[in-house]
Design a protein around this nucleic acid. Structure first.
Lengths: 332, 332
DNA sequence: TCTAATTTGTGCGTATGTATG
DNA sequence: GCATACATACGCACAAATTAG
């Protein structure tokens, strides 16, 4: 029996007939793992169809994880397990408690409709580029956290535009791509407005902003709020050897500084929530039990995961701002 | 170790794999200045590849000024102080706050003396094997966290023995390889002994041990301690819907369970440190300020990173146990 | 000096996947 | 669907230098 069966009258497009033929051949074990498939030239000649049509079919098989290709050699069978229709490439920056929540809710919503591979670039541009390039052509969808990396948009643009989604943080170069992201500037501004009734007892507003991993939008939102209300504010990159003045309130994106401030407060025997205040970022269980509760500005990572999964599955293309909220606890 | 490592399924073209093999051999001083390289005929025969592919690789090396050739004689190493830097393959299990500390301290100590690529196996054996195999021949050093994976030692043994280092957790099969690791069994035992004066007020010892990611040594150390002192102990896989009895002390490797226990304690209005106790694993800043301080058993991840980097750079081969300690706070 | 074997060097052809218009 | 250029891989033939015998 010939490997590839083509019927002109079939309702199936030719390229799908090719995909089916290969899948069936694998199922019937006429094709084994690492077997060499006929070259696209050969198939296109033998069946009198365009090279591009065969290529389309083989690309589809590659996306599904069924075959792999080697330049100058040919196409080979990668996996004989029956594959799901969709394979998703997920590139995170780092894994922490919040990201894990996002990842798990995404997985749950995707269910068994796709196979998901997750990777981490760890804010390293070289690693980012290597991973994106290596994955290119091997997945049906690409979901990427560019974080605050500046030079990666050109790299992302090399992926098939219609299969790319941006996650958590977008930027000027990527704003046309579908995304589920935080609007850091707006979120921090609104959260501060919401907490205004508690903030009025403080007379000095301090943002601790190292600026390596954190998005610039935070600074803008914070500054806008402070200037609108004519507040006495300051933006510092770290909290080394500072003392806390009574009446100060700290806005702290990094948990490292959160602990430094709390410890300094303790050593000065200040009362958190009256003598000085804290607003932290990214809620997590432990923060409920730190010092009777830390007030946080946090996006809903669980919702981010489900929104993204729904968008990917329904093949929608939207730019969605994920909801964020101020969770008020005893530290304000 | 063979001079030239070829991976059929690598994303790198064959000729580039050859180039890299030679570069790494020079970098590791397995090839000295004016050394005679194997002839292109020999290489093509031995590896079953075309003579022209080898030629392509050697031409590339010539262009880069790394080798020279003499007609009728062969290829020779031209320059050993080439621009090639050390390439390090780093395979972690997962990234969390502690691992990040380890990674960053390693990077800092390595400085610009090497290019470091980090990967994550996420406790998945297939992924582990794929990553190790793909990397083989492409790096000058291989640093690997086998974690609690059982079947991976044969895979690790395929790497060049003299370039492999084991990190964080070793095992019986890998004990000959150089490593910087925790001795979980000893560490937990010693930590509990050190805290004995505080533990005496408790009458029930509970280890919450899911056993998926955590090393078996913890269980052995815990059990040994309890049996030595004839304590009433229990090992449970999770903390779902449990109530806390007064006089219980929990040993908790996973932070997920840590929060569950603390919240349960609060809902029962129990006093942590008197009514019940907690020992957590892996210290991090937040734990200083959770419930006035959580007692932890923790290894020094920062030191682990620098120790490892120094060992790699100096080309030493030792089995080093990384120091671990009990940090006593109010939760005991 | 001649020869055979081995080596690099060169040229040409074929086949394959990849990218672009 | 067609055309073109490019990168990778393999194979063959032959020339030129070296070495061993």
């Amino acid at each position: 029996m010939k490997l590839i069966q083509l019927q002109a009258q079939s309702s199936l497009p030719k390229y799908k007939q090719i995909v089916r033929s290969i899948e069936i051949a694998i199922q019937e074990k006429r094709l084994q793992k690492n077997d060499h498939l006929p070259s696209i030239n050969k198939i296109s000649l033998e069946h009198g169809i365009s090279r591009d049509t065969v290529l389309l079919a083989f690309d589809e098989l590659k996306k599904r994880g069924i075959v792999y290709s080697r330049l100058g050699k040919g196409y080979f069978v990668k996996s004989t397990e029956s594959q799901v229709e969709m394979r998703i490439f997920l590139l995170f920056d780092e894994l922490n408690a919040f990201k894990e929540e996002l990842y798990l809710s995404f997985l749950e919503q995707i269910g068994n409709k796709a196979q998901v591979d997750i990777f981490f670039h760890h804010f390293n541009e070289n690693l980012f580029q290597k991973m994106v390039n290596d994955s290119n052509g091997n997945y049906s969808k690409y979901i990427i956290m560019p974080s605050n990396l500046k030079q990666v948009s050109s790299c992302i643009k090399q992926l098939p535009r219609e299969d790319v989604y941006i996650l958590d943080q977008t930027n000027e170069q990527l704003k046309e791509l579908p995304s589920v992201h935080q609007h850091f500037e707006k979120d921090i501004f609104r959260a501060l407005e919401k907490g205004m009734h508690l903030l009025q007892k403080y007379n000095r507003f301090i943002l601790i902003f190292p600026g390596e991993k954190e998005p610039e939008g935070m600074v803008i939102g914070f500054r806008t709020f402070c200037e609108k209300h004519q507040l006495n504010y300051e933006i510092i990159p770290n909290f080394d050897t500072k003392t806390i003045e009574k009446g100060a309130v700290f806005v702290i994106p990094s948990d490292l500084h959160l602990v430094q401030v709390i410890e300094q407060g303790k050593s000065q025997q200040l009362n958190l929530g009256t003598d000085y205040g804290i607003i932290s970022f990214n809620d997590m269980p432990l923060k409920k039990v730190v010092e009777n509760g830390i007030t946080t500005i946090s996006t809903d990572f669980k919702k981010m995961g489900t929104t993204l999964a729904k968008m990917v599955l329904s093949n929608e293309k939207k730019q969605i701002e994920n909801p964020s909220d101020l969770i008020i606890r005893n530290s304000l």
